[in-house]
Amino acid sequence: MIPALILLVMLVAALFAPLIAPHSPIDGVLTERNLPPVWYAEGSTKYLLGTDPVGRDILSRVIYGTRISLTVAGIVLAAGAVGGTVLGMVSGYFGGLIDEAIQRFVEFEIAVPFILVALVVVVVLGQSLTVIVMLLIVFSWGGFTRQVRGETLQLKTRDYVAAARIAGAGSASIIYKHIWPGVINTVMVIASLRVGTLIITESVLSFLGVGIPPPTPAWGLMVAEGRQYIASAWWITFFPGVAIFLTVLAFNFLGDWLRDRLDPRLRQQL
């Protein structure tokens, strides 16, 4: 119940950020730097969660940050799930050389720590949102591909698949009509369990200065910006972190719940 409420709040914040946020997330008032939250004597009701070193409203930045996190997670997940699932079905259904090639690719993806790849790629190609999103997409295929391939291998031995083939259905139509409906639950569960990880990964990259470039209000970036002020202005770092924590927590609950409902067999694996 509470997780659903958190997700609802996040979604509303992301959709209506310009209406809800009291201030601009980018432009600050330099005379009102490092103001504490409202419950401090020096705090003001103008800035409920205080301001950062360039006088920007923390609350507004946290609200706009919802957009960044949810958009990145949404795009990556959609592209990752579709790409990974297609690869998994093709790999499992056709077997042979295609299967080998895809499996080697997946093994490579799993065998190399993502963070290293991200760091190297950013040194070479520079820091940009597109680069990070592309990288996250390519590195999210593996989990989907493995699981979907396994299920496809089982599904394709079913009688109804054989019947469809005898009736003259082509491979593409069998995959679409008979395999896909059988793997969709698994895909949903993996996807929902991945959202949290994705949001954390994006925030880690932004925190390290290789993710989303400033002055975009990305939560990870905000935590990094407040790091040197933790002794004097803890709120700058603290609140964006709380936002990450609550969002990821809510998605993890959702993922567990979906798994138990749709595909309890995955309990041992995910």
Binding site: S203, V204, V223, A231, W234, G241, V248, L249
Partner: peptide
């Protein structure tokens, strides 16, 4: 387990520093 899986490591570190060091 829930907290560990939902909090970003960098933030855990900073909050621990705030609490126990600062």
């Amino acid at each position: 387990a829930l907290m560990g899986q939902s909090m970003p490591g960098f933030w855990v570190g900073i909050v621990l520093i705030m609490l126990f060091a600062v």
